[in-house]
Design a protein around this nucleic acid. Structure first.
Lengths: 190, 190
DNA sequence: CGTATGACCGAAAAAATAATTTAGTCATTT
DNA sequence: AAATGACTAAATTATTTTTTCGGTCATACG
C-alpha cells in the first residue's frame, strides 16, 4: 500500500494556506509540496474550495474541542477564560491560519478568506457569549449584554495579538494574558 | 469687502472630505461647493495636501483643546475618561472625518488618509498614555504598561463605535459608555 | 484494470495600453 | 489686484492583450 495520499495533501495544503493565504496557494504548488500529481488532489477533493473547507473544518473542530473541554471544567469564569487564552495562544497553526486569512481579507479581500475568518470568529464569539451568559446567571459576572461583551473580549484579544504588532514589538504571551486579565477581570482601577 | 473666501473654502473642503474622503474630493468640487473659482483655492493653499493638512490641524487642535480641558479638571481618572468619551462621541464632525478616513484607508489605502488617521490616533494615544501614567503615579490605577493600556482603550472604543456596526445595529452612546466603563473601571466580574 | 498523472482547455487574473480625469498653472477678466 | 476657468501634464481609470491557474481527461503505470 502506498503512503496515505490524502493526509499528505491536507498537510501540504495547510502549510501553503498558512504561509501564502487562500488565493496565492495554487493547486500545482500543493501537489508539488505533497509530492503527488495535480490530478491526484481531485480524487480526494472536488475543488480548491472543498480542500480549503476541509482544512477550515479541522481547525474549527480543534477550536471547538478545546473550547468544550475548557467549558466543561468545574472552574470560575475567569479561570476558564484564562485557560482559553492559553490554549489559543498555544495553538500556533490555527491561530496563524486565522491571522493569514485576516491579512488576506484586508489586503485583497478574497471572499473565501473572508468566509474562513468569519466562520472562526463566529465560533469564538458564540462560545464566549454562552460562557458569559452562564456566568451572569450564576452571578459571577455583572449583568451586561453578553454579545457586546464577547465582541469586546475578542477585539481586545485580536488587537493585542495582531494589531499591536503593526507599530510595536510583539508582546509575549505572558504580557498579552496579563493585560487581557487586567481589563476583563477587575479593571485597571485599584 | 467680499465674503471671507478662505473660510468658505475650508468649510466646503471639510464637508467634502467628511462625505467623500480624501481621494474622491476634487478641487473643482470644493470650488463649486464654496462658490469660488478653482484658481482661488490656490491663492490660499499651495496644494490639495496643504488644504487637507490645515483641516486636519484644526481637527487635532479641537481634539487637543478638549483633551487638555478635561485633563486639567480636578477629577478622578475614571471621571476624566468618562468625560473624554462623552466629548469625543459628541464631536461628530471630527469623529466622522476620522471614521471616513479610516474607511478610505481600509478600502483603497490612500496614503494621505492613512497619515491623517495616524496623526489623530497618535494624539489620542499619547494623551491617554499620559493620563494613565499620571493615574498610576497617584495610585489610582494599577501599575501596567501605559502604552499598552492606552492602545487597548482606544481599540475598544473604535471596536464599539465603528466595527460593531458592520454586523449589528449601532449601539447608542449610553451603551457604548456603559460597556467601556464596565471593562475599564472595575472589570466585568462581580 | 484501476489509480495516478501531467499536458491541455477555458476562464479568470495580471500586464500592457488607451482613454479619461484631475491637480495645478496662468493668461484673461472683473 | 484679486478672481477665474480654459489649459496641460500627470495620474487614474477603462479597455485590450497576455499570462496564469483551476479543473478535466486521455495516457501511463503498477
Amino acid at each position: 500500500m502506498s503512503i496515505d495520499r490524502k493526509s499528505l495533501i491536507l498537510l501540504a495544503a495547510t502549510k501553503s494556506f498558512v504561509q501564502f493565504g487562500y488565493k496565492a496557494t495554487t493547486m500545482e504548488q500543493v501537489s508539488k509540496i505533497a509530492n503527488v500529481g495535480k490530478g491526484t488532489i481531485y480524487t480526494f477533493f472536488k475543488t480548491k474550495e472543498e480542500l480549503f473547507e476541509e482544512i477550515l473544518d479541522k481547525a474549527t473542530q480543534e477550536l471547538t474541542s478545546v473550547m468544550n473541554r475548557i467549558a466543561a471544567e468545574d472552574n470560575t469564569f475567569i479561570h476558564k477564560l484564562f485557560n482559553l487564552l492559553d490554549s489559543i495562544l498555544e495553538f500556533r497553526s490555527d491561530h496563524e491560519l486565522f491571522v493569514k486569512l485576516a491579512q488576506e481579507v484586508r489586503d485583497i479581500g478574497t471572499v473565501q478568506a473572508l468566509e474562513g475568518v468569519k466562520r472562526m470568529e463566529d465560533y469564538a464569539l458564540d462560545f464566549l457569549r454562552q460562557q458569559i451568559e452562564r456566568a451572569i446567571s450564576s452571578g459571577e459576572v455583572k449583568p451586561c449584554d453578553s454579545s457586546v461583551a464577547a465582541f469586546m473580549i475578542l477585539r481586545l484579544y485580536l488587537a493585542l495579538t495582531t494589531e499591536w504588532n503593526k507599530a510595536h514589538e510583539p508582546l509575549d504571551e505572558a504580557r498579552i494574558k496579563e493585560h487581557m486579565m487586567l481589563f476583563i477581570s477587575n479593571g485597571i482601577l485599584k
